[in-house]
Design a protein around this nucleic acid. Structure first.
Lengths: 346, 346
DNA sequence: CTGAAAGCGCTTACAG
DNA sequence: CTGAAAGCGCTTACAG
């Protein structure tokens, strides 16, 4: 049983297909009211639903926005996805979702598929390995842009397309100042992979702000950009700093983990070692992911409006001029101090 | 600058469009090797990417799977989404995502849009209000099914389409037994809205299992199916039970919250009131959402393999016979006891 | 304001 | 094995 076509409603309404198309989907002035009503009535009676595929082919615009994230189950990305989804819906667009699980081949494949489906725009969320995409991907994107596609990156900008980027460097510096303000003097850093710029910027912003005050981190350890990365980095770090439970005589060192997810992993590792936060060791993260809300101890962090970031990305994606001019929006972070970095008087 | 079309590569390869189509996309036997090679070479040189929209129109199959969730930022749904996404990718399908934020109008609109885009299948995740969809939505789905579409529900089955449903009743009963086994005798329930069957089944499974042992909950309170719903229900509950910090002389009552998200909200409320878990009040949830991993205190719960549920839904969606026979798969839950329900000796 | 007709980029019987 | 041609369901100049 085939679906109702525009032709069917046209016949039923006694008008041409062109007219039916105009009253149902066309934007310009509506035809004579009588005609329009008849067409609408016919469409309703038949239960007509326009075939978006056919429309896309005829209009050469699909109304599809492709979103590629590292891991949709990660609260950081699912919050961004919510923003993208909401903004897309308001703009009458649909979102195609791809979750790469940090697999580069899957990412490349996803971009191809989105292009093949002629997504009007592609949003790439999550920092990439090196400064740019690999050769193949880049060529494919170039062709896509030539054909009128638009690319928006969340995070580190590429050599093409628009970008919305958190102010990682500046916000991390603010965090450092806030922690110094709390009385901290001993610091350590749990950084991310050296080729991920987000990780590097956060580390640099923090460390260089400390340097301003003549402070240098006691240790720096790098881990994966994940909860488990934070977990194992924290173990190594506590060994390096020779941390022990209940050393109330010393002021505990303050660790900066470049993402909340890593910080949470670190706290879990320490708990397992019997180390209490903030009594034996203090910590701060970055992102203010929603799950922090009910995490104990409360984690000091830098709040990023993740949903807002997703919405901005859509706005850029829909704005051709923004894409052509390679617009680059920065979104600020806001320092939030919670229990995890509180220095208790001894 | 228009994209490369099949016609272009056909001309370049010196063959007909039909032949080019067959070597590039057709499934059956590949034409003479020489020809095939030339076509592939031409496609590569030109950077040909098939237009999926046109293919969809010609084949009347889009390769699109629509996923509708209540809230993509909720870890329950984002885990399911991950499963859906992974299974879809393996099957060469693309997923369209809609997050309704629990707004029924948006849900209806999303279904329409997916149908309009001729998604091959639609997966509806999350319990619905009443037993079924509303009139409009149902009629639209009926037409969709007639036209070859397939619908899969995660949770309570509808009057049509396939379903994958957690064994809510049985698993909640097991949880009750496990808690009785831990020595609990005083119980309370934080339930969900009375018209959401998932909530009702879990409540019933739990309460009826208790009844088997001659135990009746002291109180039952209903809340929204959300973190804040659990939060406010917990406040009312602690008033009803007259809970106070440090009543070490009594065995604390054990509360069953029908979702982990609600349980987490409840714990937050109690913490604010100075009530400690599990010393002043015990609690167990349901779902084993991933964020539980680093939640303190560890929450006793029923583990559902959320990713697996998403994957199963895709499998059903892709299997026409399953849809036609209104397949109904059950997925078991596994009781996990953690700190939140531990009864300490006084 | 309305309609006939071409075109969007593919696939697929149907012949050869 | 290969090609000419019709068809998928719309939109949109172009005439009237």
């Amino acid at each position: 049983m085939a679906a109702v076509r525009l032709q069917d409603v046209a016949i039923r309404a006694g008008v041409s297909q062109a007219t039916a198309s105009r009253v149902l989907n066309g934007s310009s002035r509506v035809p004579g009211e009588g005609v329009a009503d008849r067409v609408r009535a016919a469409a309703a009676e038949l239960g007509y639903v326009a075939n978006a595929q056919a429309q896309a082919l005829a209009r050469s615009s699909t109304g599809l926005i492709g979103l590629i994230v590292h891991d949709i189950a990660d609260p950081y990305f699912s919050s961004i996805a919510q923003g993208v989804q909401a903004a897309a819906r308001r703009a009458g667009k649909l979102v195609l979702l791809a979750s790469t699980q940090r697999d580069f081949d899957i990412e490349r494949e996803s971009v191809s598929t989105f292009i093949s489906h002629r997504a009007d725009a592609i949003i790439l969320a999550g920092s990439r390995q090196s400064g740019d995409l690999d050769r193949d991907l880049e060529k494919e994107c170039a062709r896509y842009l030539d054909n009128g596609g638009t690319v928006v990156v969340i995070g580190q900008p590429l050599s093409f397309g628009a970008a919305v980027e958190p102010e990682n460097y500046a916000a991390s510096a603010q965090l450092a100042h806030a922690l110094l303000g709390q009385g901290h003097r001993d610091f350590a850093v749990i950084g991310g992979p050296g080729n991920i710029r987000t990780a590097v910027d956060r580390r640099n912003g923090f460390v260089e702000a400390l340097a301003t005050h003549g402070v240098t981190p006691l240790v720096e350890i790098a881990g994966d950009f994940s909860r488990d990365g934070g977990f194992s980095a924290a173990r190594r770090l506590s060994a390096a700093l020779d941390l022990h439970p209940g050393q109330v005589d010393n002021v505990p060192p303050c660790v900066f983990a470049v993402t909340d997810v890593m910080a949470i992993g670190a706290i879990a590792a320490w708990r397992q070692l019997g180390l209490a936060v903030p009594d034996d060791v203090c910590i701060a993260g970055f992102d203010d992911i929603p799950t922090l809300r009910d995490h104990v101890p409360g984690l000091s962090t830098v709040a990023l409006s993740l949903v807002d970031i997703g919405e901005r990305a859509v706005r850029l994606a829909l704005d051709d001029s923004a894409t052509e001019s390679r617009a680059h929006e920065f979104v600020p972070g806001r320092v939030i101090l919670r229990d995890s970095s509180v220095l208790r008087r001894v």
